[in-house]
Amino acid sequence: MNPAAKLYAEPLDIIITGVGGQGNVLASQVLGRALLKLGYGVTVGETFGLSQRGGAVMSMVRVVSQGVMGPLVPENRATAILSLEPLEALRVLGAYGHPQVVVLTNDRPLMPVNVIAGANRYPDMADLQAVLAELSSRLYWLPATDVALELGNPILANVVMLGALAASGLLPLGLPELEAALAEMFPPAKMEANRQALARGAALLA
């Protein structure tokens, strides 16, 4: 099966980042499954390591019309960065950013324990937003956790962000494809919340 739509970039390299426990790996799997179903060549590289112990975590979703890519996006070559935590968006930009990169980030900070301990400072949110905008061609600064909390569970922020990504024009797919991929991974009882999270995420870009 050959994919129908042309990709935004070839390869389309989307880095999903965040903090352990935010559902980063799940988001990358949903995206990977949906794209694979449309016939694209998909590679999802996951770096979790000690992620469940409060560390940063990163997945790389690499999409091509044909063939297979390596698991690592080359340095400074990400097409887009989808971040579940704003500081992590900036951290990833340093290694994978370039003037044309698109950034979508949840605006809810998760304090590193070294910041909580007072050893380091978390940047001012306005500074962080300005810097992300400066280092990207497009920044979507999104209240994904707020939306998720409105839906009843902060863990849905990852699905809200996927909904936003689908509405950004970067993906060759829409909400139904993501929903179908989610349905493969969640019991039907959980799908209503996921559907709403996708829709609310997409609406953030409307």
Binding site: A56, R91, G94, N114, A119, N120
Partner: peptide
């Protein structure tokens, strides 16, 4: 990303 590790001030 070790180059972004700030020293702990005592």
């Amino acid at each position: 990303m070790a180059n972004h590790v700030a020293a702990e001030a005592t």
